[in-house]
Design a protein around this nucleic acid. Structure first.
Lengths: 272, 272
DNA sequence: CAGACCATAGTGGTCAGACCACAGAAGACC
DNA sequence: GGTCTTCTGTGGTCTGACCACTATGGTCTG
């Protein structure tokens, strides 16, 4: 006699799960409704719920999500399904999960739109649906717009701080001893910093995600090259010119320099 | 080849799972390496693998992924972890899953960048990290650029087909009896169609995702209004004007009209 | 009493095995 | 030859268990 059979028969919680599929069987109609009742993916319940609580303000960035076991019980689904939802939020850059206990552990709400978008973009570049060329073009569009729209007077304090940070970055990058990978990293931060001056978080996030999505391709190009120092020198000069133009409030000139800078580097990194 | 099957047969997978954590126990050093070895998230293995196969061309859009059970065994992980990876790909718009057997069933590779990005954006709007206002502003930027850059001569056949489709859409929308939700739907397709004329898939995908991300907000605004017909009339006129400008190759004028159109509707939908 | 120490509890991460509904394919049947 | 039934494989879900991690609170020691 298998004990498992007894468990299956008596287990009340399993009945709740089984009941879901049997309900639709009551309609004897022929084709009736082919796609009337779209089956509502269990994890979607949690996803919708969390989205609503975010929208209503019950959940804020920095908050800790209830434990997976608690969410499972609250929604009447299994922990596995809850994990599906959490996993998606994680991939979207909405939560950060970590083990352990206490504050800061578990699933904590964050907000990093760029990471999630970047992952999606990278996958679609891999599938050849999107091309690196198109991403670079889009990046030029967004970044030149940001440079043109930078409003230093909107929040003078913040603008000054950002420009100071940018200057520090460039100073660090002036060191010829700097590793190529470190240079690449600081380069990315420089561009994101500048794009933040326009004050549009969506564009800033997209900018960053576009850059993240193709950073692997760029890194491969940089790593395999031998004559890096001359290239770095050109990039340094371009960066200084851009930053000077932005700091001087010459948005149009900064945009032109940016376009030139990005196109030049992309052309170099895809040299034959 | 056969070795992997033999290993799996003698329950090697469970041993691998258990062994992971015990390795770090050998280091008695105090802090030693705080974050030296980042734990490599089991599902990430599958994700990286699929991305590589996409990049190398072993997997193409339209292909069918191996079954979850097969992937689990191939990577030496559990089916649950494989499902995590598939779930992420699903959320990103990289695969479409469905039950059943035969071709078309299971996890099939698709490529719908907009859906994945839109979900991410919507979540971050919900978390107040991004605002609807910023999304609208970004949409204006991308869409006016697309209108300005539309090149009808690049692919005359396709351009003509797109313009014909657009005309058909507008004709359908001229029907005063049209439901508001249907109008909204056709409106979306009209804008996406136009943005496709620029020939940049990234911008087209982002355009669509921006629209999807805030479509709920727009729908709520439209649904609760009583005097819809006058609004629809204005929108129809604006659409016709935009399409005429695009068809005439007057990109700048089309861009101006588009900006006016989007700003007007956004202003109306957020009227107090 | 102060400090170092250890047991506990709660968290996500992973695994294993099972059953279901679904859809195509292969065979049996007329 | 055409219909029907059965079989097979798929994702979807549930359950239960163990692991590693971390903060906490109690205990032991000086």
């Amino acid at each position: 006699m298998a004990t498992t059979w007894e468990n299956a028969g008596v287990n009340a919680s399993s009945d709740a799960g089984r009941a879901r599929g049997t309900t639709a069987r009551t309609t004897p109609g022929p084709p009736a409704d082919p796609a009337a009742t779209a089956r509502p993916k269990a994890y979607q319940l949690v996803l919708d719920d969390i989205e609503d609580e975010l929208r209503s303000g019950q959940l804020k960035v920095g908050d800790q999500l209830p434990g997976e076991r608690a969410l499972a019980e609250a929604h009447g689904i299994s922990r596995a399904s809850v994990r599906d939802a959490i996993r998606i939020l994680d991939a979207m850059g909405v939560v950060r999960t970590s083990t352990g206990s206490g504050p800061g552990a578990g699933a904590v709400l964050i907000s990093e739109p760029a990471t999630g978008i970047a992952t999606a973009l990278r996958m679609h570049v891999a599938s050849a649906r999107l091309s690196v060329q198109e991403i670079v073009q889009t990046r030029i569009l967004l970044e030149t717009w940001a440079a043109r729209s930078a409003d230093l007077d909107a929040d003078p304090g913040r603008s000054a701080a950002v420009l100071a940070d940018a200057h520090r970055l460039l100073a660090t990058m002036d060191d010829p001893q700097l590793e190529r990978s470190a240079f690449h990293e600081l380069d990315a931060r420089f561009h994101v910093l500048l794009s933040g001056l326009a004050g549009n978080a969506v564009i800033e996030a997209m900018m960053e995600s576009l850059r993240l999505a193709i950073s692997d391709y760029v890194r491969d190009a940089v790593r395999s090259d031998e004559a890096w120092e001359p290239v770095a020198k050109v990039l340094r000069d371009q960066h200084h010119g851009i930053l000077d133009a932005v700091a001087a409030g010459q948005g149009d000139q900064a945009a032109d320099l940016l376009r030139e800078h990005i196109e030049w580097f992309h052309g170099w990194s895809t040299r034959s």
